[in-house]
Design a protein around this nucleic acid. Sequence first.
DNA 1: CGGATTCAGTTGTTGCGTCAACTATTGCGG
DNA 2: CCGCAATAGTTGACGCAACAACTGAATCCG
Lengths: 172, 172
Amino acid sequence: MTDPTPWLSPEESAAWVRLVAVAELLPSALDAQLGADVGLTHFEYVTLMSLAGAHERTMRMTALAALTNATLPRLSHVMRRLEARGLVRRFPCPEDRRATNATITDAGLALIEQAAPGHVRAVRSNVLDALSPTQLEQLYEIAGAVLGRLDPEERLNATSCQFSEGPRTRIA
Amino acid sequence: MTDPTPWLSPEESAAWVRLVAVAELLPSALDAQLGADVGLTHFEYVTLMSLAGAHERTMRMTALAALTNATLPRLSHVMRRLEARGLVRRFPCPEDRRATNATITDAGLALIEQAAPGHVRAVRSNVLDALSPTQLEQLYEIAGAVLGRLDPEERLNATSCQFSEGPRTRIA
DNA sequence: CGGATTCAGTTGTTGCGTCAACTATTGCGG
DNA sequence: CCGCAATAGTTGACGCAACAACTGAATCCG
């Protein structure tokens, strides 16, 4: 009982401190670049990208919330703001009249196509360029292991593939 | 000009997505545990820890802000709340009457001593336990490399050593 | 010495995320 | 078929961080 928490070893502490620093600075850096560039937060960008990659560029609010790891209230507020800017549209789902479908508009598509190059540059210059191919693989494994603890549900899995594509299209 | 952003390779994209997920979930997890345990945010906890480890348990606001990577307004607001809870005290610096010194109170020390075990447990269960010793070393290197890009000024360096110590004391 | 600039902090406003209601629809059990 | 729980989403209130404007003290400089 006197030693339920053996404190952290120097190695653990050093790695932990750096990880925390990255976790704090990275979101700010992403938001800053996207905000200055096109007036979007990173979350708004991911939301629009998810819609752009969806079938018919349309998704149910709940599905979109799960995909972007947002609570439903948060997504609702964000979508209201995006809709006010003409970047998305919302309309009731015909099959389930409780549900709401969201679609990205042409203006929304145009905006993320405008935003993407700068965002990719920021990702490279802030992170990827600092890592060797070996470290990239290690990062993949490490982040995966940590995610297994942080997100046992594995809800965040489909956000991917938004980056390895060329300009997004309907499907083909 | 047509290819200034070669998009991301599948490997890059996969690692990036996982890193972003960790960067989003980790702060929430820390805040949730500390908030439920002792009603502190992670930032407040780090602030109190920094004060506890400082000479005479006292620090200038500017120094504390630099150490915790906070803006001065943010720190000012946080310190006002902490002072209202009796966890810190503020008083004008005798040598420079522009400056304000902050000290952690005995109540503040007691609170972080109460909070530390649970926090360390959370750090372990959410991150460290998922990594092998090799991965811990890799994480240290990777996070260091990324920090070199995100924080070229190296402002976040002294937050360390708060974890490898036993219960904090003045100095000796 | 005296005015201007810089520095240290605080305060007010705005924007975003979370939490707690609340509405409306669906599906289930009797 | 009728109530009742569960689901989908919206809305409003509150808390915290960012930004800008402000006060007061120190420093620079002529």
